[in-house]
Each structure stands twice: as structure tokens, then as C-alpha cells.
């Protein structure tokens, strides 16, 4: 983990209340798929944890996709090329890349971004990738084409049916009878819990309110499935846990 002033290269709206920001940063050379950064936004006390969507270790750039949920992320949308940001990262553990197998990647809303670099690396490792993306509606959808261009088979589910399957990501998995050796997922806890009934092997990335992002504040803890005295910090031991490890 390092703290660095990172430079904004681009910051553009890609869907309803959703922005993609590309940053120039030395720390890009240390990133792994599924990790996150913790950004300081002027005028706000706590940092904002945001997952890494993709990175280029040679050009020292990385991309984040964030949704405007409050005043802090709204402020983030005003940054322009040339502006800088106080950034801590890369933080947390990462998605292990399983080689020469099959994988289904499932993302819900802002859980979609970390799956992009993961898909890229899985495909490079000769793993056959199917992606299921869940959004509120058509206007909120993003990166559907980008995943296709990586060579993944892509399905979409929207809550109101304006794009893809009407319903949830788990409806798509059931309807299409999607099967694979590994599941890779990121999104709200209810989605992760539902996915555990379909898959035995794979990795789930958890979302949580955090304060420090480095394991000190104990704001983002979860319990072990078997040993209820054992707990994990989502920011430090996570955010990625093997299927079956976390007690919901």
C-alpha cells in the first residue's frame, strides 16, 4: 500500500449517475484484479473506497467506475484532466486467476467494475468466461460491449426488464442453465448469498462501509461461516473470499 497524488487523465459519464475515471499512478504497477483504492475528496473527511476496474502496469494507469451516491462522489464528477487526487492503494486481497477452466462472472451495479480486469486476466489464462451483469435498468447499464470485446459471453439482467432478462442475475443463471467450474462475483450481500446456492467453488467480493481501508477501524467486519468467534476485515482479509467462507 502506498499513498500517492494520482493524476486524472479522463473523467466521463458512461451511464445514469455512473462515471469512468482514468488515472495516472505509480501504484498501478502493483495492482491485482479485485483490489481497491481509497480516495480523499476535497471537503470530505473520510476516504471513499472504490474498486479498480482495470489497470496498465506498463503505462502506469488505472480505471475506476463510480456511482454518484452522495455529495462526495458528486464532487468527484467535477474533477477534470490534470487535476490530482490523494489516493491510497492498492488495498485488500484479490481474485485468484484460475487457468484453463470455465468461469461465470457475476456483477451487480457497482460490483461490475472489478470483474472487468478479472475477465481480462482469466481470458488471457485460457479460461472460458461467461459474464452476467445486473443493473437497475437500461440507463444504468455499462461495459456490456466492453466485456464482449474481451471475448466473454455476456448476459444482462435489469430490475425492470428494459435491457436483457427482466429480473435478477440469478434468474439468468437459472433460465440459461449456466454452469462453470468457478464463480467470480461482486455485489450486494443478498446477491452473493443467492449465488452460493448455485455454485460450490469460486470467489465472492464483498462491499461494506469502511472508514480506514487498512484494517484498523473494525467498521467492515464479517464472521467466518463455521467458527463464529473468527472474523475477517473486508478491507484487509477481503474483499475477496472463497465461496462458503463468510457467515452471512
Amino acid at each position: 500500500m502506498i499513498t500517492e497524488q494520482v493524476q486524472v487523465l479522463t473523467n466521463r459519464k458512461i451511464a445514469e449517475a455512473t462515471y469512468e475515471m482514468v488515472l495516472q499512478a505509480e501504484m498501478a504497477s502493483k495492482m491485482k484484479p479485485g483490489q481497491f483504492v481509497n480516495l480523499k475528496i476535497d471537503g470530505f473527511l473520510l476516504r471513499r473506497p472504490i474498486s479498480i476496474c482495470q489497470y496498465d502496469q506498463f503505462k502506469h494507469t488505472f480505471t475506476i467506475i463510480y456511482k454518484v451516491v452522495g455529495d462526495g462522489t458528486k464532487k468527484l464528477t467535477t474533477l477534470q484532466s490534470g487535476d490530482s487526487l490523494d489516493c491510497m492503494g492498492p488495498l485488500g486481497n484479490h481474485f485468484p486467476i484460475e487457468k484453463e477452466t470455465t468461469a461465470i462472472l457475476v456483477g451487480g451495479g457497482v460490483g461490475v467494475p472489478p470483474l472487468y480486469e478479472t475477465a481480462k486476466q482469466l481470458i488471457a489464462a485460457n479460461t472460458q468466461v461467461t459474464v452476467v451483469l445486473g443493473f437497475a435498468d437500461r440507463a444504468a447499464a455499462f461495459y456490456v460491449e466492453a466485456f464482449k470485446q474481451l471475448g466473454a459471453i455476456v448476459y444482462v439482467a435489469t430490475d425492470n426488464g428494459t435491457l436483457g432478462t427482466h429480473g435478477r442475475v440469478t434468474n439468468v443463471i437459472a433460465n440459461e442453465n449456466l454452469q462453470a467450474e468457478y464463480i467470480y462475483a461482486c455485489g450486494p450481500e443478498a446477491m452473493l448469498r443467492a449465488l452460493e446456492t448455485h455454485f460450490e467453488k469460486g470467489y465472492l467480493s464483498f462491499e461494506a462501509r469502511m472508514a480506514c481501508g487498512i484494517g484498523a477501524c473494525m467498521a467492515c467486519v464479517c464472521k467466518d461461516r463455521q467458527d463464529t468467534d473468527l472474523y475477517y476485515r473486508i478491507c484487509k482479509e477481503g474483499p475477496v473470499f472463497p465461496v462458503g467462507k463468510v457467515g452471512f
Binding site: 473527511l45 473520510l46 467498521a219 464479517c222
Partner: peptide, 22 residues
């Protein structure tokens, strides 16, 4: 183990926490 989540919330120039002595 402490309190259930969420345990923190931001406030103007501050934060609220209810970790619960974990």
C-alpha cells in the same frame, strides 16, 4: 465481535462510529 453493520457513517468534518468494543 461488536455491533452489527453498518458501524460507521460520515458527518460534516467528522464521523459516527458504533463498533461496539470489538
Amino acid at each position: 465481535f461488536g455491533n452489527p453493520l453498518p458501524r460507521v457513517a460520515e458527518t460534516p468534518n467528522g464521523m459516527l462510529n458504533a463498533i461496539g468494543l470489538q
